[in-house]
Simulated scan of single mutants.
Amino acid sequence: MSEARTTKSRAKSAKGETGTQAAATTTAERPRLRDAERTSKAILAAATKEFAERGYGGARVDAIAERAKINKRMLYHYFGGKDALYVAVLEGSYVAIRSAEARLDLSHRDPKDGMRELVVFTWKYFLDHPEFLGILSTENMHKARFLKRSARIFALHSPLVAEISGLLDRGAAAGDFRPDCDPVKIYMSIAALGSFFLTNRWTLSTIFQRNLSDKSEIDAWGEHIVDVIFAYLRP
């Protein structure tokens, strides 16, 4: 074989080896990326439970690491420390509920159906995610000191306000809702009626001698929220 052919053959072989190595590197990176994502999710889930149950002051990094089944050094590697982790938990909590709300597709719903769906969804979300109310309670005790550090939080809520505003405008145009309703006040009313019941049901049950944790009471309160909101919206 001539020297030129030998050189060309070696070049092809080297190119083939380089391509194989690159493919092997990419394949090796995928499990690492998946492991990193799983670890990050495990830390956030553990931190959410810890902060919801013990508040910011009572939560411990050691306890979060133990819940996530990792060592503390790895937690610091992913999130940098307790403050940054707490902000990530706050953001993650809001991302979760706003993402779920987006799937309601309120922009394309009949106004009355869409409003009822939003009320029912919010009530059920609070029931299914008590940690969300726990995190919010903790942050309100701190007067939103940590939430103000988030660069994402304001953008997360704009689509929800716009969708509620659209429901109200379409409902008013159809004669189903009163005009000039404030979308933020409507959402605050929905959230307040649900969260107050759930965060105070133990004392309320004792005071009024009614088991507000009973399924019939919970279902009835959900319908009560719908009735109150629609009574206000009625033209």
Rank of each mutant, 00 (worst) to 15 (best):
T199A: 09
K185V: 09
I64T: 07
I153K: 00
G81H: 10
A173M: 09
D219W: 02
K215R: 15
D105N: 11
Y76M: 13
A63S: 05
F154P: 00
P183Q: 04
L106I: 05
P31D: 01
F126D: 06
M74V: 13
G134K: 08
S2N: 12
F126M: 13
E217H: 04
R170I: 13
I164M: 14
T199H: 02
S13D: 11
M188Y: 11
N211P: 02
E29A: 09
L204W: 05
L233V: 00
E3T: 08
S165C: 14
L133T: 09
K143A: 15
R178A: 07
M1A: 15
P31L: 07
M141S: 05
P183R: 01
A96I: 06
A47I: 11
R34C: 05
N200A: 02
R210Y: 04
P183H: 10
W123F: 14
W221F: 14
A155F: 10
R60H: 11
G171S: 10
V120C: 03
V95K: 15
K124H: 14
T203S: 10
D35F: 10
L198G: 01
A144V: 10
A84G: 03
T27Y: 12
T27E: 10
Y94R: 10
A192Y: 04
V228T: 06
D113K: 01
S213I: 06
G80M: 10
R67N: 04
A174Q: 02
E223L: 12
G80C: 08
D180E: 00
D35T: 05
A173Q: 07
A11M: 15
S99K: 14
L133K: 12
E37K: 13
V61T: 07
Y94V: 12
A151G: 13
S195K: 02
E3F: 08
V226L: 10
Y125S: 03
T203C: 05
R67P: 00
P159E: 12
A11P: 07
S189V: 06
I186Q: 01
K148N: 04
F146H: 06
F154Q: 04
F208V: 01
K41C: 11
G80F: 12
A68T: 05
L90W: 04
S137F: 14
R152A: 15
A102E: 15
A155Y: 08
A63K: 01
E66L: 02
G114W: 02
F196E: 08
Q209V: 08
R54Q: 11
E101D: 04
T39Q: 04
E217D: 03
Q21S: 04
L33E: 09
L75M: 10
S137P: 02
K185H: 11
H77N: 03
L198Q: 03
V119D: 00
A151M: 14
H108Y: 06
L44M: 11
E53V: 14
M188H: 09
F196K: 02
R60N: 09
H157C: 04
T6W: 15
S150N: 12
K69W: 08
E139A: 08
